[in-house]
Simulated scan of single mutants.
Amino acid sequence: MASRHTRLINQEQIVFGLTVLLFVIFSFMLPNFLASNNILSLLRSVAVLGMLGLGMLVVVLGRGIDLSLVANMAISVAWTVQLVSRGVPLSVALTIGIGFSLVAGLINGLLIAYAEIPPLFATLAMGTFIYGFGRAHLITGTDVVYVPQTIGWILELGQGTFLGIPMPIVVAAATALIAYFFLRYTKPGRFIFAVGDNIAAARIGAIAVRPILALQYGLSGAIAFLAGVITATSVQAMNTRIVDSNLIYDVILVVVLGGVGLSGGKGSVRNVIVGTLLIGVLLNGMTIMDIQYTVQNVVKSLILLVAIVADSVINPRDEQTGQQGDI
């Protein structure tokens, strides 16, 4: 009977119900909440968060975590923008930037897959290295790198519209759709689920586990770069101090909150979307009510704590996961 209830009412459905409830409450409480401009602003404000959540989803499904995600995003895109400002052709700068992001992600994967360093420590160290190396050797002398007007068509990704919908929302939706088809209909996508569900069984089933682990982090790096491009072109700058913000915790929050199991092998793109929408509605409502930023962080922290506790109950860590040191 318990298992039947678990199937009928899961965390994703509860979070979706809370999102709808908050949406209805804010609609009655806040006069401008239902305005079309505010709804588009709400979705646009969480578009990058949702994209980063998709990058985190790919690694969490395989029993990992990527704490270098924000550092990779900030430094790779800031370097790209600075190269363009110095006269490097946009195509070359983009190739260098995404190459840096992919290599950083793949190094994470290699450290975890072949050196068998726990993902928590490997990605934390890599994030610190990326930020320090980037500030010291790639974008020296400034915290904020401004996007020049001469950067061309790429500005449309952050500032343009498609059928009246801001491009950040369109790009986030397209990224979610691609991630969905990749995880559901491709062999590497299904292998990621298999590795996360039971790594020993995956090996017995002739799945190349180590290359799959490396692939996860490479994909995470690529998504981080795209999210960074949207961020930079939206505000025409990339502030590298974003690495010191709470953004990485917000990314983990939307993933866990939506119902993705930190023990691996359980979750979907839909979970990330649901978690992102709840946080978007909540933050938008609190912002309209002029609630202080520090109070908003406290609320998000409490929600993250509750979500992690719920995850530990719904998706308990098994003995193998505990031995690996994964989250």
Rank of each mutant, 00 (worst) to 15 (best):
130 I>A: 04
293 Y>S: 11
184 R>V: 13
145 V>Q: 01
176 A>W: 03
260 V>L: 05
202 A>E: 04
230 I>M: 00
320 Q>D: 13
126 M>C: 09
127 G>V: 15
160 G>M: 12
116 E>T: 14
245 S>G: 10
286 M>S: 04
31 P>T: 13
127 G>P: 04
202 A>G: 06
69 L>M: 14
224 A>N: 08
193 F>C: 14
263 S>F: 01
237 A>P: 03
221 G>S: 01
171 V>R: 06
233 T>A: 07
104 A>N: 05
184 R>C: 08
103 V>I: 11
288 I>A: 02
253 L>K: 12
297 N>T: 05
70 V>G: 01
106 L>A: 15
271 N>S: 10
210 R>V: 03
138 L>R: 02
315 N>V: 05
97 G>N: 00
98 I>G: 00
146 Y>S: 15
58 V>K: 00
156 E>R: 11
175 T>M: 11
1 M>H: 08
122 A>V: 09
46 V>K: 08
266 K>C: 09
256 V>G: 09
216 Q>T: 15
174 A>T: 09
314 I>A: 03
266 K>Y: 13
313 V>S: 05
24 V>H: 09
18 L>Q: 11
141 G>H: 07
152 G>W: 04
4 R>C: 02
104 A>H: 02
25 I>M: 13
327 I>S: 08
253 L>S: 11
254 V>C: 09
130 I>P: 01
198 N>K: 11
92 V>K: 02
236 Q>I: 12
309 V>L: 15
307 A>T: 01
54 L>T: 06
234 S>F: 08
269 V>C: 03
148 P>E: 13
277 L>N: 01
288 I>Y: 02
46 V>H: 04
247 L>A: 13
160 G>F: 09
9 I>L: 15
14 I>H: 01
313 V>C: 01
255 V>F: 10
296 Q>H: 04
41 S>T: 13
323 Q>T: 12
215 L>F: 13
46 V>W: 04
301 S>W: 08
24 V>G: 11
304 L>E: 03
200 A>E: 14
98 I>Q: 00
89 P>G: 03
160 G>T: 14
18 L>W: 08
3 S>H: 10
109 G>V: 00
17 G>M: 07
281 V>Q: 02
222 A>L: 14
284 N>E: 00
204 I>L: 12
250 D>I: 15
235 V>Q: 15
212 I>S: 10
259 G>P: 11
300 K>G: 07
131 Y>N: 12
18 L>K: 00
325 G>D: 12
30 L>I: 15
166 P>L: 08
33 F>D: 00
67 L>C: 02
229 V>G: 02
283 L>G: 00
243 V>G: 01
42 L>N: 03
38 N>F: 08
198 N>L: 09
43 L>K: 11
56 M>K: 02
185 Y>F: 13
167 M>V: 02
129 F>E: 12
196 G>F: 04
226 L>N: 10
198 N>P: 05
257 L>H: 08
26 F>E: 05
275 G>N: 10
